[in-house]
């Protein structure tokens, strides 16, 4: 069983938590997310030009880079996380240029050594998969793709081809941290994608509150929360862990119990 297979269950939705690497005390923040009940960790790789991100994650990227975060620091954070948490899936999420700068093989080898399970590359369209995908797959790392409201039935097979781990359904056409999509639209799209794929489907973009998370958890295999965590890190700095732990726990409770509550 891969760590993803353990984390996703047919009977219970998973909580996927995103923070930006190098923004605040990342190790302590990650521990707080796990202690609060995170099932999967997405670790954001900061980039100077995060064009798919809203203001909260843009600011986190810039804080991290201003603090001097380097790619080697991100792998060090991942390696240490893996040592402390052998069973929690860890996904690197970021933009193509920092991932391919030293060549895709270098990146895939470092990610494998660091115990990374999957990689989400926001601006690497499936059409450009040869730039990174083959190397990731050869090193046992899942390329995790995004599907969006604009990914129609004709295009979906292209997105699914070569992806593994889970599929990230971006519930709104837009950037991170803004408005949330209507639940009916999420339910319909998740059901549509399920017809074409056995991958777990997680839903993100604009999910902030336990109530929103609970509603999505009833229809999806996982719920992603990012900007809300990043804002906590931005607000509390080195004191963030206790707030992250508490907020994660409230989300985890809502997500994990969603289907029982509904039934």
């Amino acid at each position: 069983m891969t760590r993803f297979q353990t984390a996703f269950s047919p009977t219970r939705s998973a909580l996927v938590c995103f923070i930006t690497a190098g923004d605040g005390d990342t190790a302590a923040n990650l521990d707080a997310l796990v202690e609060g009940g995170a099932d999967v960790i997405e670790l954001g790789m900061p980039f100077t030009d995060p064009m798919a991100d809203g203001p909260a994650i843009q600011a986190a990227n810039l804080r991290s880079l201003a603090a001097g975060t380097k790619t080697k620091d991100i792998f060090a954070i991942a390696t240490a996380f893996r040592a402390r948490h052998p069973n929690v899936p860890l996904v690197l999420m970021g933009y193509a240029n920092p991932m391919v700068r030293r060549g895709p093989e270098w990146f895939a080898v470092e990610a494998e050594k660091a115990g990374v399970d999957g990689v989400i590359c926001v601006d690497l369209a499936p059409e450009e998969d040869p730039d990174l995908g083959p190397n990731l797959r050869a090193h046992g790392i899942s390329p995790i793709r995004l599907a969006t409201p604009t990914t129609d039935a004709r295009r979906l097979p292209t997105v699914l081809d070569g992806s593994s781990g889970f599929l990230y359904y971006v519930s709104v056409a837009g950037i991170t941290g803004k408005q949330q999509a209507a639940l009916a639209s999420i339910e319909e799209n998740v059901a549509r994608i399920k017809q074409s794929s056995d991958l777990p489907i997680v839903v993100g973009f604009g999910v902030r509150t336990p109530e929103q998370a609970e509603q999505i958890a009833r229809v999806a295999d996982g719920v992603v929360v990012g900007s809300a965590f990043v804002e906590i890190v931005g607000k509390y700095g080195n004191d963030a862990p206790e707030y992250l732990r508490e907020y994660t726990a409230s989300l985890a409770k809502a997500v994990h119990n969603a289907r029982e509550t509904a039934a």
């Binding site: 601006d123 690497l124 369209a125 059409e127 995004l146 604009t150 990914t151 129609d152 295009r155 837009g174």
Partner: peptide, 10 residues
């Protein structure tokens, strides 16, 4: 090439 977020690809 076409290095854009999936939302823009279609």
């Amino acid at each position: 090439g076409r290095y854009v977020a999936e939302t823009l690809m279609p």
